[in-house]
Design a protein around this nucleic acid. Sequence first.
DNA 1: TTGATGACTGAAATTCCAATTTAGTCAGTA
DNA 2: TACTGACTAAATTGGAATTTCAGTCATCAA
Lengths: 197, 197
Amino acid sequence: MRAIAVQENIREIILDAADRLLARYGYKKMTMDDLAQEVGIGKGTIYLHFRSKEEIVLSHVDRIVERVLERLHALAQGDAAPAAKLREMLVARVMLRFDSVQQYSESISEVLRDLRSTLLERRERYFEREAEMIALVLVEGQRARVFRRQDATGTASALVAATNSLLPFNLSTRELGKRKDVEQAVQRIADLLLNGL
Amino acid sequence: MRAIAVQENIREIILDAADRLLARYGYKKMTMDDLAQEVGIGKGTIYLHFRSKEEIVLSHVDRIVERVLERLHALAQGDAAPAAKLREMLVARVMLRFDSVQQYSESISEVLRDLRSTLLERRERYFEREAEMIALVLVEGQRARVFRRQDATGTASALVAATNSLLPFNLSTRELGKRKDVEQAVQRIADLLLNGL
DNA sequence: TTGATGACTGAAATTCCAATTTAGTCAGTA
DNA sequence: TACTGACTAAATTGGAATTTCAGTCATCAA
């Protein structure tokens, strides 16, 4: 029991350390020796928890998105009006990512340049899962007759796509602009998507 | 008179050749000797028309965006309903770019990797000019009382930002998906932006 | 016995440096 | 006078020598 708890924990600790080193060095220049030292364990020990360097970094990215999905889930469950929930979800999916990589000096796609193709595939899947979460709220709104639209799945994908250009993926947070301005930009887009012109 | 016509023309011809070579080689591997040969003129002659290799490529990108802006202008002038015009403009700004780089095997940001920072700055300015064009139609719609929104400038920026993720900049056209699907995706987003849920 | 370790290995990356290529120039040509 | 391509300095490349690195595993400590 204790062992498992520690086991779970050390994975998280390794990912935390990877986060710091990625922000500082990027993928290529972050070495497994660096990482082991940052965590304060032997290099071999890392390999008891992760298959490879690549898996660590992808797990780190997965973790960020899992947190986004958790938040979206929580918001979707809330008892606010569907429109208000959608608005918050769209803002959350952008800002949570923004905050997760704020300390990176380069964009994620630059930091993880060597993993670009793998990352692009995963990104598609992340977006699909977010869209599913959004679709739930769309259906709720349809049932309550507050949304006209029928095709929840297609509409959800469109909502995701419309907010994607503000994600800190191809641009660093510095390049995206001030946090407050980015938030305002998503708000505006979300408002238009929900209410039209 | 004749001389100027040829002068104007040769610039275009050089940009056409640059377009072909960029698609084939990318920025770094396209040499000025290649380019001169492709055009069928001496290398020195190119420098009578452009200051540098960088200027050629940036002029090429400018030309694509100028064409987009011309098209947006034409659509904005049209006598369709404001909503219909906006819809067409949003679709056009994406699809015209899509068609302009369809033959590139890598994304623009990859092809022009060495010019990234210059390109990002210009991109901001391109978007602003497109937003201005869109704002004109928004004002028209406000006047006709078919749009509720007041802040035309802010709204126009939001419309641009909401369609930006479908531009073939960070993704190649191959990565973006089939032309038809991309077009459908913009349509959907545009529809939501105009009419809400 | 078991979880953890770091010395070890082959492969990949980096560093030189000589040889080549290239952007941009300019004296000369037609 | 409009154009050219040989020319130059600077950048890039190739490839041999050296270093670094991801991943393994024999050994250790608890």
